[in-house]
Write a protein that binds this DNA or RNA. Sequence first.
RNA 1: UCCUCGCUAGCUCAACGGCAGAGCGGGCGGCUGUUAACCGCUAGGUUCGAGGUUCAAAUCCUCGGCGAGGAGCCA
Length: 446
Amino acid sequence: MAIIKIEDISKYVGEEVTVQGWAYNRTDKGKLVFLLLRDGSGFVQCVAFKGDLDETTFDQLTRLPQESSVIISGPVREDKRAPGIPGGYEIGVKKVEFVQLAAENYPMALKEQGVDFALDHRHLWIRMQSQWAILRVRATVIAAIREWLDTNGFLNVDTPILTPAACEGTSTLFATEYFDEGFAYLSQSGQLYNEADIMAFGRVYCFGPTFRAEKSKTRRHLTEFWMVEPEVAFCDLDGLMEIEEQFVTHIVQRVLRDRMPELKFLGRDIARLEKIIPPFPRISYDEAAKKLQELYEAETAPEKKALLKFDWGIDFGAPHETALTNLYEKPVFVYGYPTAVKAFYMEPWPGRPEVCKSVDLLAPEGYGEIIGGSERMSSHDLLLQRIHEHNLPEEAFTWYLDLRKFGSVPHSGFGMGVERTVAWICGIEHIREAIPYPRTIKRVYP
RNA sequence: UCCUCGCUAGCUCAACGGCAGAGCGGGCGGCUGUUAACCGCUAGGUUCGAGGUUCAAAUCCUCGGCGAGGAGCCA
């Protein structure tokens, strides 16, 4: 008898199959037991009638502890009443093998958990349907990222996680002792290395964990998160935006194709995701500032109004991003930020040195910045001047400056936060649910 | 770092100065279509900690601990 995956169950209607999994939920009704079984690929209802099984087996099923591991065989039936992911199918129980009877004090109730409790039990929480669905979407987002980049001329060239100093000289870094070399720091970006790599390979991306030691405490921050950073030689800011919108569209459409049961279980508004196709709106920082001023004046609630206060020259806060993106149904590009609020390596806007060729992509529905990118500075002398202005140690950037001495070209790149993207696509409140084991300022367990 | 909030049964919460409770989960029993099943019975407590006010504190006050939401910073 074939061992099948629950996600493929629709192919086996009328056949006898075997599934290997865990008892997710159970309800019994006299001579009938309903067992919701999960096998990692999905959730399916198994129905046992007392008359179909020997007395001992049936009796054991009626008192089967939650999360017990079992192997169940029987015929697949289509039945609209059957719950599951995907729902609508059930297995009539003919044979049961009890692999392990779980202890009776399984701590996770099948309902909403308090955040603290749920995170302390993350190793069990990931078994629950909601978390399982989110992490399945995450895997598909990652697959789609690699798929699009690999088929569009990008070479995966990974960058070091242990680095000598701050890439951008801004964020707070995690430090670790490094033999006789003093300290090494956990990477907050592979971008500077990417710039070296494109001069060897043309188009590259790095993809891995990224670390920020800032004491951020919001639903949009983790201390360890995953970022994909593509970088492209011979590419200006407009070219970069075209790449970003194709890239994001591919990711969303791939998730819609492969993870519809998960999205539906999560209650995601599918229609909103289906609208994510090019072109995305593009507005300048100046235009965004004007719109924010209008929104500020139109806001009547004093508390909200205070949060929306905005003057030209400042970076957007979360309330600004939310207000701005609520004007659009698609992700929106905001380009040309003030030079003063951005990193030292961004190309100045021609004729307007107070503005730089940077672009952020802000996700709709209040999810905020999912991509930050820019055209990089290609002039050696200007770059050196900026390094001095930012009080960065010139000797640490010798190799980076070399890139502008030997065949410098216009080039651009961006970084996309995986967890923010997953949170947006899933429609969940907090990005800690978009990574298997979240690391936050107050949590490194489990 | 700052502001705000929370901590009571395994979980989610109620009791808000006067006997510490409910639902879920656990155990036992009943029921042939359950969807967080339902019905009956049952076990389960250092009310985060220390100190204080009071005849009386889960409840009020002080200090501490732990956590969350938000700001700043960022993806």
